[in-house]
C-alpha cells in the first residue's frame, strides 16, 4: 500500500475517476512515475543519467530546468524540428517535463 498524504490521495482518486472515462492512456495518470523513472528511459540516447561524451545527441545531465522544459514543449508543438523527439514529447505532460527536468538538472556532469 502506498504511503500518501490525504491530499495526494484525493487527487489520485479524482484522476483515476477521470481516467476511467478516457478510452486511451493520457499523460496524467493517478500515480505519476518519478522524474528518475521517466528520465532513465532517455539514457539509451542521451546517456546514463544524462551523461554523454561525444555523440550526436544532447547530454541532459546538468541541463537547466527551464531549458529542458522549453525544449520538450518545442518538440511537442513541432516548433523545433526533430526526428523522433516529437513522438517522445507528445507522450508526457507538462508536469512530467518538470519532473524529468529537475531530475536531470541534479545530475552531475562528467565529460
Amino acid at each position: 500500500m502506498r504511503r500518501e498524504d490525504t491530499v495526494k490521495k484525493c487527487v489520485s482518486v479524482l484522476a483515476l475517476l477521470v481516467s476511467l472515462f478516457a478510452p486511451t492512456v493520457h499523460a496524467q495518470d493517478a500515480e505519476r512515475p518519478t522524474g528518475e523513472m521517466m528520465g532513465n528511459t532517455c539514457a539509451a540516447c542521451h546517456g546514463t543519467y544524462g551523461r554523454l561524451g561525444s555523440a550526436a545527441f544532447v547530454p541532459l545531465a546538468g541541463m537547466e530546468v527551464e531549458e529542458f522544459v522549453r525544449a520538450m514543449r518545442a518538440f511537442r508543438d513541432g516548433s523545433r524540428p526533430s526526428t523522433l523527439m516529437h513522438s517522445v514529447a507528445v507522450g508526457f505532460s507538462d508536469e512530467e517535463y518538470q519532473a524529468m527536468a529537475e531530475f536531470f538538472a541534479a545530475q552531475r556532469i562528467e565529460e
Partner: peptide, 11 residues
C-alpha cells in the same frame, strides 16, 4: 519500501 509507478519506452 513501496514500489514505484513504472514507465517504459521503446524508441
Amino acid at each position: 519500501r513501496d514500489t514505484q509507478a513504472p514507465l517504459w519506452e521503446n524508441t
